[in-house]
């Protein structure tokens, strides 16, 4: 039942018969990718038990990213498929990156904010140290009536 139905256009080019244009990957490639994923799974487990300390998370994430690359590139066919799908996928990753970056830029700079108020460490939850009243600013405003910026070093 071969339908040579080729009316119309696809991406500005005259349409081709339905059975053309499909990339069939060899069986060997799939098996090799599966083997690589298995090896990397073992690596992930070994890395967690190797006692790498703080580098452990980074290594685990790197291995996971390589595994993800294999799954997306070969199992999901992205490497051989229409480039625009790659654009959709990688722009998603970009926005996930922005999401993470903005949030951590916030969380990681809260310490600096509260240090100004005399707080060494401010945690996110309710029972953590709530920043005390900013006494310095209070004293200044009662004295001079306005808040002065600290003089830069060596100004006088």
């Amino acid at each position: 039942m071969s339908h040579e139905y080729v009316k119309g256009y696809v991406k500005g080019q005259p349409a081709k018969p339905a059975h053309e244009g499909h990339h069939v990957m060899p069986l060997k490639t799939y098996l090799a990718v599966f083997g690589a994923l298995m090896v990397l799974t073992v690596v992930t487990v070994l890395v967690s038990q190797a006692g790498l300390g703080s580098a452990s998370l980074a290594v685990a994430m790197l291995v996971a990213l390589i595994k993800a690359g294999f799954v997306v590139g070969y199992f999901m066919h992205l490497k051989y498929d229409v480039r625009f799908y790659s654009f959709v996928f990688f722009s998603t990753i970009l926005f996930v990156g922005i999401f993470f970056l903005m949030t951590f830029a916030d969380i990681n700079t809260r310490d600096a904010m509260s240090a100004e108020w005399g707080n060494k460490r401010m945690k996110l939850d309710a029972q953590a140290n709530v920043p005390p009243k900013p006494k310095k600013i209070e004293a200044r405003s009662s004295g001079a009536g306005e808040i002065k910026a600290p003089e830069p070093a060596g100004a006088k």
Partner: peptide
């Protein structure tokens, strides 16, 4: 859809 290829790319996108 005009043709199978067009249908496929719409579905996959």
């Amino acid at each position: 859809f005009d043709n199978p290829a067009q249908q496929e790319s719409a579905a996959k996108l």
